[in-house]
Design a protein around this nucleic acid. Structure first.
Lengths: 143, 143
DNA sequence: ATATAAAAGGAGTTAAAACTCTTTTTATTG
DNA sequence: CAATAAAAAGAGTTTTAACTCCTTTTATAT
């Protein structure tokens, strides 16, 4: 349903939201080790997050990634759009072209319900809430 | 969420369920053209369906695929197991190892609900019902 | 200023899924 | 029994996502 890249992006962004606030910076090394994500691949993904303004970064010694004013308010679905594009939102479970409510494939309604529920969750929850959950020990970013 | 192969397998099996009963046989050519699925690739997939006993086939001139006593009663989830393996049933949306209700990722509950709903539908509905829907014009296998 | 450590960027490789081509087997029909 | 038409099988190729490596830029600290 979602790419691995999305999972990496989401977890890493949440990690920075937790550990990279109040002037603290987090390095790629730390993130990739803590979350068990390939170092260089994560580099690319983080670039993208910064480019889209979801996080900030600074180069040089003692540089790294850190949360900015947008980070906490970013709905998870924003990250999905960046990593997986907007095609996710309307492609058919059976890959039929022009499958829609009027011309449905045999799984259209079931799948629409399933996916829309999921997308709703991703639109409602933001990085700040997700980070808070993790900090409260209610859910985990790794292992 | 599901592979393209699953979509091809499901649609083709339903097609045979509709057009390959009462002694009638359906050829690969016809299926792949009607459903716009690559001919040879579909060949492989159909082999698998036959191997698993979901359909029967016969070689030679006027050979082809046809429904057997199991075809109609096969729940859709059977086909999913064949094409995508059983991993689909418990892998985490964020690809975290050992994500479960006790140790959930931040999307575990939302995703479990979404996926379980979908799997429930696939377990409840069988090929016969799906074929009937299509024959009644309630849903479509192509276009 | 220079060395250094970090992210950014470019360009490549690998792995898996999707798809193709060719040959073999087998049933049918003339 | 020969020709044919279909599925089965084997072995490739292509495409895409996932991942790696190397170089460049830039901020920091000495």
């Amino acid at each position: 349903m979602f790419s691995k890249t999305f999972g990496y992006a989401l977890r890493a962004t949440a990690y920075v939201a937790i550990h990279g606030k109040n002037g603290k910076k987090v390095g790629l090394q730390e993130i990739s080790q803590s979350l068990d994500i390939p170092h260089h691949f994560l580099g690319k993904i983080m670039q993208d997050m910064v480019r889209h303004g979801l996080l900030d970064s600074i180069k040089g010694p003692s540089g790294g990634f850190f949360a900015n004013e947008r980070t906490m308010d970013t709905p998870l679905v924003e990250i999905l759009k960046i990593t997986d594009g907007s095609l996710v939102f309307d492609q058919c479970a059976l890959n039929i072209k022009r499958c829609n409510a009027a011309n449905p494939c045999p799984l259209h309604h079931e799948f629409a319900q399933c996916r829309n529920g999921m997308l709703h969750s991703l639109a409602e929850k933001n990085i700040g809430q997700m980070a808070a959950e993790v900090e409260a020990g209610e859910s985990y970013l790794a292992r």
